[in-house]
Amino acid sequence: MTQPLDRVRSQVNQIILGKDHQIRLALSCLLAGGHLLIEDIPGVGKTTLAHALATTLGLNFQRIQFTSDLLPADIIGVSVYDRDNASFKFHPGPIFTQVLLADEVNRATPKTQSALLEAMEERQVTTEGETRPLPEPFFVIATQNPSHQVGTFPLPESQLDRFLMRIHLGYPGAEAERALLQGTSRRDMLNELKACMSPEELAELRLGVGRVHASPALIDYLQALIRHTRTSSEFLSGLSPRAGLALLHAARAWALMDGRGEVLPEDLQAVIPGVVGHRLHASGQHGKVNGADVAASLICAVAIP
C-alpha cells in the first residue's frame, strides 16, 4: 500500500536534494489532510518543493504570489456581468484547485490572508451569498519568509493554528548543493515531472492514515506531552486540544509512511517539531525563540511512559 508513496518520495527527493526528512514531513502533513506552511529565507526551494509535491501526487496545481496589494477577490474569484445572458457570471479564482501554493503568504494584508485562511478551514468559498465547495482533496502549501524581513505582515497565532505543520527547509548540505550546482535546471525537471500516484491511490492512503492504531500507551505519552506544555513554566501557553489531535494525526501519517500499522513514540517525536513549533512559545526567561528548540526541549522533558 505504501509503494506509491515511496515512489513519490524518491521522485521529490530527486528534485529537492538532501531534504528527505522535510519531504517526509510534508507528505505526512498532506496525507493527514492538513495544510502545510514552509517557512524559510527566499531561494532554498520552497516553491520547488510545493510544485514537485503537487505534480508528483497527481493533483492539479495553482500558484498565487502574495503581494501587499493582493485582494481577496484575486484569490477567490469575481462575478462579472455577462451581457449575452444578462446576468453575473462567477469566474473562479485560483483557489479552486487541489493544491494551492500560496507564495510568501505573509506579504499580503491581513484581510487577504484571512480570506485564504477561511477557505482553508471551511474547504468552501462563499461569495455574494453563494457557497461553492472547493475541490477534493484541497491542500494549501503556503510559504513565508521569516517574519523579521521587511514588508511582511506576520500571521497571527490563530491563523498559524490552521496549518497542521510548519517546516523549515534550511540550506542544503555541501554534497547536495554540489549536485544541485552541477545538475540540470530544476525548472526543466519540474516541467518533465509526471504523477506517481492516481487520485484513487491517494484517497486510499488518506483513509489508511485513520486506520493506523494508536494504543492506550501511546495516548498516555501524548497526554503526558500535552500536560507538560500546560503545566511547565517554560511555555507561555499550553497546547490546545486541536494541537493534540493534529499531533496524533500527523504521527499516524508518519507511521504509515514508515509502513507500520501502529503509532510509536518515535512517530510523535518526529512530527513534534513540525506540529508544535508554530503553536508553542517559550516564555521569555528561557530564551528559546526557535520552534525547533522548543520542540526539542519538550521531547527531552517528557519520559515515555
Partner: peptide, 9 residues
C-alpha cells in the same frame, strides 16, 4: 535508555 527515547531509536 533515555527516558524520552523511543523503542526503535
Amino acid at each position: 535508555r533515555e527516558p524520552s527515547e523511543g523503542p526503535l531509536t
